[in-house]
């Protein structure tokens, strides 16, 4: 029904970055808690990833607005009191995003206080040695991060675009994809930090393997749902249409099957690792980007035609 794409590339990139930010944060936090503190550094890396990514994402969102200077209207009324519109996923999600950004910033200060190079910085020492506070905030922000990861899909669903609205599975799919891309980002941190603990890398890969299985199930639900409720503008537009190749080759093969195969293989033969796991992580990130890109563009273009 429209001559142009209403939500363009800036939104695709934002949804992708917010997914990695949320996914890396809560995956890192859970890794810390489940490992009894042994993988504390995954929680740190998650924080170091989350804050810049969410900031870049929010800046892109603000620049994408038709009236950028008034962006604060989304969270504040004209009299500067907070505004929450419960029926609006955009409103609720922006609050999740705001809380996630603020908490990630505070948690980042706790992590920075542990770094060698910050010992001369002002104020930062006040955050030193307060790990129980940091853990408590991390637990809260872990849940907020999950809500950030999920709302991005639900935001698309609360429209009249048939591909997005016809099924309730987009939030589930985006949450799975966010977790997978978050784990992939943590794997690349492992590589970038030259971390000697290969066991940790294996566990990240194993966790991602399970998440990809869930993501495949979410995709199956989505396709079945679209087949039932939006066969033309949903299913056909996604799996054939102008984005069909990007869907099958980009998302399904390169983004899901290929990294899954690598992770299963590495899991069986743990002696062969680093290079292959890095490749799997990069493929997961490319696939995660394409999930957003294809669904956002194919959905809108089919709708307006």
């Amino acid at each position: 029904m429209h001559n142009h794409v209403v939500w363009p590339m800036a939104i695709v990139i934002y949804l992708f970055l917010a997914g990695i930010a949320g996914g890396a944060f809560y995956s890192g936090a859970l890794a810390e808690f489940y490992s009894g503190g042994k993988y504390r550094r995954l929680s740190k890396w998650g924080t170091y990833l989350a804050l810049p990514l969410i900031l870049i994402g929010v800046i892109m969102l603000i620049f994408d607005l038709g009236r950028s200077p008034y962006f604060w209207h989304i969270i504040l009324k004209d009299n500067f009191t907070p505004l929450v519109v419960w029926s609006s996923t955009m409103s609720v999600g922006t609050w999740f995003l705001t809380i996630f950004g603020v908490l990630s910033f505070i948690i980042l200060l706790f992590w920075l206080s542990e770094e060698e190079r910050t010992k001369d910085w002002p104020i930062i020492n006040r955050f030193k040695g307060k790990d129980s506070v940091r853990k408590f905030l991390t637990f809260i922000n872990m849940i907020v991060g999950m809500l950030v990861a999920a709302y991005t899909g639900i935001l698309l669903a609360s429209t009249s675009v048939p591909m997005w609205h016809a099924t309730p599975f987009l939030g589930l799919l985006f949450a799975c994809s966010a977790t997978s891309t978050g784990l992939a980002a943590l794997m690349l941190c492992h590589k970038a930090a030259n971390d000697p603990d290969e066991e940790m890398l294996h566990l990240l890969g194993k966790a991602d393997m399970d998440v990809i299985f869930l993501e495949l199930a979410a995709f199956a639900l989505l396709l079945i749902g679209l087949g039932a409720f939006a066969p033309e503008l949903g299913l056909k537009a996604l799996i054939t249409g102008p984005y069909g190749i990007a869907f099958w080759v980009g998302i399904v093969i390169c983004g899901l099957i290929f990294p899954l195969a690598i992770e299963i293989y590495v899991n069986k033969f743990p002696t062969l690792t680093l290079g292959l796991t890095t490749l799997a992580a990069v493929l997961v990130l490319v696939g995660g980007f394409l999930v957003r890109y294809v669904i956002i563009y194919a959905g809108q273009i089919a709708w307006k035609a």
Partner: peptide, 25 residues
């Protein structure tokens, strides 16, 4: 579709937290 969307998404995240990520234990 918002209520059912949240239900599925939160169920999925619950599964993710309880199974794949519990591998870190």
């Amino acid at each position: 579709v918002v209520p059912s969307g949240w239900t599925w998404a939160l169920a999925g995240l619950g599964l993710i937290a309880l199974f794949p990520l519990r591998r870190f234990t």
